[in-house]
Simulated assay, not measured.
Amino acid sequence: MAMECLSWFIHKYLFHGPLWFMHKSHHQKAKSFFEWNDLFAGLFAAVSLFLMYADRDNLSYRFFIGLGITLYGLIYFVVHDWFVHRRFKTFKSNNTYLQAVRKAHKVHHKNRGKEKGKAFGLLFVRKTVLKN
């Protein structure tokens, strides 16, 4: 739950803020399988691996923060990249919740620009967003 909140904040205020120069590739028609925005996944993976490795002997909060980032990254990959954007065509579902997640993300992508975005989260879907 904490990772979803942090992810929302990062997406709204950093990706659609000073890091837009990289994230905008995600809001444009894909020219190839990879986009500049994918570098964020590598950055988050590096941070999580560093935290887990650095705290591997103690297994204190740093290790579990790294593990949380890793698990959220896996969920993000499956739900966002695989299901919502269909980067791999093998995951289809008529599940009501997953369809709401897909619709909310489409609302987010209606706006191709940096400003005036909606629905910055991934797993929490507001009913007001779905009414658009």
Rank of each mutant, 00 (worst) to 15 (best):
A2K: 04
M3S: 06
M3Q: 12
L6C: 13
W8P: 00
F9T: 11
F9A: 13
F9V: 11
H11Q: 10
P18Q: 06
P18I: 14
L19C: 13
L19T: 09
F21Y: 15
M22K: 11
S25K: 02
H27I: 04
H27C: 02
H27A: 01
H27D: 00
Q28D: 07
A30Q: 14
K31W: 04
F33S: 04
F34P: 00
F34M: 13
E35A: 04
W36H: 05
N37F: 08
D38Q: 06
L43I: 15
F44K: 02
F44W: 15
F44N: 03
F44H: 09
A45Y: 14
A45M: 14
A46Y: 11
V47D: 03
V47R: 00
S48T: 03
L49Q: 03
L49I: 11
L49V: 12
F50V: 04
D57H: 09
S60L: 11
S60I: 01
S60W: 10
S60A: 10
I65N: 01
I65P: 03
I65F: 07
L67G: 01
G73H: 12
L74C: 12
L74W: 14
I75W: 11
Y76T: 00
Y76G: 02
F77V: 07
V78R: 05
H80V: 03
R86E: 14
R87K: 12
K89G: 05
K89M: 00
T90P: 00
K92R: 09
K92G: 00
N94M: 05
N94P: 00
N94E: 13
N95H: 14
V101C: 02
V101L: 06
R102P: 00
K106H: 11
V107G: 01
V107T: 07
H108I: 12
H109R: 10
N111M: 09
G113I: 02
K114P: 02
K114M: 14
E115K: 11
K116L: 10
F120H: 14
L123V: 14
V125F: 08
V125N: 08
V125L: 08
V125A: 09
R126K: 14
K127T: 08
K127R: 11
T128L: 01
V129F: 10
